[in-house]
Simulated scan of single mutants.
Amino acid sequence: GNLPVPAPAVLGLLAGTGAVVVPAPTPEAARYELVTPTAAAIFATLARFEQPAMKVEAVGYGLGARHLESLPNALRVWVGEVAELPTEQTITLLETNIDDMPAELCGYLMERLFEAGARDVWFTPIQMKKNRPGILVSVLAPAALEDRLLDIIFRETTTLGVRRRPVGRHEAARELFKFESSLGPAAVKVKRWGGRPVNVSAEYEVCRELARRTGRPLQEIYRVVELEAWQKIAAQEVNEPWR
């Protein structure tokens, strides 16, 4: 018999992922399956349903076999690196007090929250009622992820309530700069303010691999990589001095 659109399998796969389901854009499109179960499974496994500012490196198109009069049967994919804008942003701060949970569960909670997209997670020692020591769990995240993070907090902790409030913060732009150093392939995070680089920070995993491969001390690897990164960045911006 006939099945509703979206198909039950598609809705089942997307439920709980944060995907927003909207009506078909035209009456004609409403008669056809625009998202297949295979696509829904890929989205549910790999996708985060948000659109960050990004540097687009490539664009790809896929065309479907069915011809629709009212809209193109096409999929467009952007590939690039996230580029955070130096502007004041409003994000959500979630907080809760806990005094009856083992420490190892706190570590697991932090891992889950970061995996779900939290910008930052930290624990603060506090004194609670009946003179019991406890911790204040604080989570910074985009407002769009609030429901997902609340679900993790309530499932993975003993808390009965979570406070929330919007907070504003100024952010410097950042980018990942990959280059060929004298020690091998390297990468640093570049912090920009006012459009100009003001700091570089070597990537730990890359430096660790270089240290193991070369046998040189890790702190020396850090110094070499960051110095050479500055030199290459300065050469790129010779017409726009930043020091």
Rank of each mutant, 00 (worst) to 15 (best):
W230Q: 08
K129C: 05
M101N: 03
T92R: 00
G16I: 15
A7T: 11
Q231C: 08
L75F: 09
R223E: 11
V224A: 09
R164E: 14
K189L: 12
V190K: 07
Y222W: 11
R192S: 10
G1W: 13
V5A: 03
Q236W: 04
A65C: 07
R163G: 11
I135P: 01
T36Y: 00
L149Q: 02
N131T: 06
A7C: 10
I126F: 09
N97V: 03
E57H: 02
A187S: 10
E180Y: 01
E69A: 15
E57S: 11
M101H: 08
P125R: 04
E50I: 04
E240I: 15
A229T: 04
P185C: 03
E95Y: 03
V56P: 01
F49I: 10
R212D: 14
T36L: 03
R243S: 10
E88H: 05
W78Q: 13
G215L: 06
Y222I: 04
T92Y: 02
E209P: 10
E156Y: 13
R216L: 14
E226K: 11
F43E: 13
T158R: 06
V82I: 10
G161E: 07
G194I: 12
I153P: 01
T157D: 03
Y61S: 05
N199Q: 14
A53W: 00
A41P: 09
P166S: 12
L136K: 04
V35K: 02
P125D: 09
E50P: 00
T17A: 09
W193E: 00
F179P: 01
E50N: 13
P6A: 06
M128K: 11
V206W: 00
S181A: 07
A234G: 11
A30G: 09
G18Y: 00
F123D: 03
G16F: 13
S70Q: 09
I152C: 04
F179M: 08
L75R: 03
R196Y: 00
E203Q: 06
V190S: 04
A24S: 13
A202P: 00
N73W: 01
N131K: 15
L105H: 13
E240G: 07
G62Y: 07
G18D: 08
V190C: 10
T214Q: 12
A83L: 12
R223V: 07
V190L: 12
L3M: 14
Y204L: 12
L218P: 00
G18N: 08
R66C: 09
V139C: 05
G134Q: 08
F154P: 00
F179C: 09
E220V: 07
Y222S: 13
F43N: 09
I221Q: 05
E33Y: 00
G184D: 04
A118I: 08
A40S: 09
A40K: 00
W122F: 14
A41R: 03
G107I: 10
R192V: 08
K178I: 06
V22P: 14
A15Q: 15
V121D: 01
R216Q: 13
M54E: 08
T92I: 14
N199Y: 05
P166V: 14
V10H: 01
L14T: 03
G134R: 05
